[in-house]
C-alpha cells in the first residue's frame, strides 16, 4: 500500500530502529542528556522556521489559529478526563494527569509529520507551528485544576487525616500559583515562542546565515532524536501489561478522537490546505512525553508516572507515527476536498 511506502523516510525508520534495538535488548545506549540537547535544537529550529515564515502570514488567520489552539488545548483534556472517568476503572488523579498529556502536544510527532509531508512534496502553512507553541500550556493548567478540584472534593483521603487536610487547604492556593507559573514559563514554550519571535523580527539576510544550521542538518538531528525516542518508547511499551487494557485502549482511541477534532478545526474552521490540516490533526492527536510528564510529576504526585508515560510515549507516540499520520492524511484529503 502506498501509505506504507510514504513512511519509508529516515525519520520514521530511525524511530523503528531505536525501538527494535531496545526490543532485542541490544546494549546500544545513548549518553544521558542527548534527548534534552536535541530537543533544544529542534524547538529552536522549528521556532525560527515558523517565525521566519510568519513574516509573510496574515494576521487574522494567525490570530484565529492561536485562538483555536487555546480552545483545543483546554477542551481536549476535558474530553480525555471525562472518557477516563466514564470507564470507572481510573481514579480522578490519574485521569487528570493522563488527560493533561493528551491535551498537550508532541513536538516529535509534529516534526515527523513535517518530514512525511516534505517527502511527499506537500506544502503546509506555518500557522500550525504557532499552534504547537500555544497548545503546550493550556493542557497543563487544565490538568492542575482538575487534580486540585478532585483533591478538595475527595478530602484527600489516604493522608494523615484532619491536620493534613487543613494544611493542604491553606497552602493550596500558593501552590497553585506556583504551578500556574510553571505552566506559563515552561522551558519548551519559552524557547519555541522566543525562537518564533526572533525568526519573525530578524532581518532576512541574517536569518539566511542560519539556514545551514536550522535547515540543512535539521532532518539528521530529527533522526537522532527519533532514534532515541524509539528506544524510550520500547522501554515504556513493556509496561503495557501493568497499565491495563482500559488504558491501552484509551491510548489508541484518544489520539483518533483528538486527531479527528483537530482535522475538523484545521479544514473547516481555519480553512487550511491538506498539509496544514494534517498538522493540526497531529497536534490534536499527539500526547506530550517531554514537557508534561515532569509538570504532572510535580503537581499531581498522586498519579502514577508509569501510567501516563507508558500511554503517551509507549503507546500513543508509536501509534501516531506508524498508523496515525497516514490515516490523518487520508482524512485530511477527504475533508479539504
Amino acid at each position: 500500500m502506498s501509505a506504507l511506502s510514504n513512511l519509508l523516510i529516515p525519520a520514521v525508520l530511525f524511530f523503528a530502529l531505536g525501538f527494535f534495538a531496545r526490543a532485542i535488548k541490544s546494549d546500544l545506549r545513548v549518553p544521558p542528556d542527548l534527548a534534552k540537547v536535541l530537543s533544544i535544537y529542534l524547538l529552536m529550529a522549528i521556532g525560527l522556521h515558523g517565525g521566519y515564515a510568519l513574516g509573510k502570514a496574515e494576521l487574522t488567520t494567525a490570530f484565529n489559529s492561536v485562538l483555536w489552539a487555546v480552545i483545543l488545548g483546554f477542551t481536549l483534556p476535558l474530553i480525555g478526563y471525562g472518557l477516563l472517568l466514564m470507564t470507572r476503572k481510573v481514579d480522578h488523579m490519574n485521569a487528570a494527569a493522563i488527560a493533561a498529556h493528551y491535551g498537550s502536544v508532541s513536538a516529535g510527532t509534529f516534526l515527523t509529520a513535517i518530514a512525511y509531508l516534505d517527502n511527499l512534496g506537500i506544502s503546509y502553512e506555518s500557522y500550525p507551528v504557532i499552534m504547537l507553541a500555544v497548545m503546550e500550556s493550556p493542557a497543563i493548567i487544565v490538568g492542575l485544576l482538575l487534580a486540585s478540584w478532585s483533591r478538595q472534593r475527595l478530602g484527600i483521603t489516604g493522608n494523615q487525616g484532619g491536620a493534613a487536610v487543613l494544611q493542604q487547604g491553606g497552602t493550596g492556593n500558593g501552590q497553585l500559583g506556583g504551578l500556574l507559573h510553571e505552566a506559563f514559563t515552561n522551558g519548551s514554550v519559552i524557547l519555541l515562542i522566543g525562537s518564533m519571535v526572533i525568526g519573525a523580527i530578524s532581518a532576512p539576510a541574517s536569518m539566511e546565515k542560519l539556514f545551514p544550521f536550522i535547515d540543512e542538518i535539521f532532518m539528521g538531528v530529527l533522526c537522532l532524536f527519533l532514534f532515541e525516542m524509539g528506544m524510550e518508547a520500547a522501554r515504556r511499551i513493556r509496561e503495557f501489561r501493568k497499565v491495563g487494557t482500559v488504558l491501552v485502549v484509551f491510548g489508541l482511541v484518544m489520539p483518533l478522537i483528538g486527531g479527528g477534532i483537530g482535522l475538523v478545526v484545521g479544514a473547516m474552521v481555519l480553512n487550511m490546505s491538506v498539509g496544514g490540516t494534517l498538522l493540526v490533526g497531529v497536534l490534536g492527536a499527539s500526547a506530550s512525553y517531554i514537557a508534561v510528564p515532569p509538570a504532572m510529576r510535580l503537581a499531581v504526585p498522586e498519579a502514577n508516572p508509569s501510567f501516563y508515560l507508558t500511554l503517551s510515549l509507549g503507546i500513543t507516540f508509536p501509534f501516531n507515527v506508524i498508523i496515525g499520520i497516514p490515516v490523518y492524511h487520508a482524512l485530511a484529503e477527504r475533508l479539504v476536498a
Binding site: 545513548v30 544521558p32 542528556d33 542527548l34 534527548a35 534534552k36 532515541e228 524510550e232 522501554r235 509496561e239 512525553y289 517531554i290 514537557a291 510528564p293 515532569p294 510529576r297 508516572p305 508509569s306 508515560l309
Partner: peptide
C-alpha cells in the same frame, strides 16, 4: 543520580526520569 525503586526505573534519559 539514576536507579530504580518505587517510581520505576529512573534512567536519566528524559526530564521525567532523572
Amino acid at each position: 543520580a539514576r536507579g530504580a525503586g518505587s517510581s520505576g526505573e529512573q534512567s536519566g534519559m528524559l526530564d521525567i526520569d532523572t
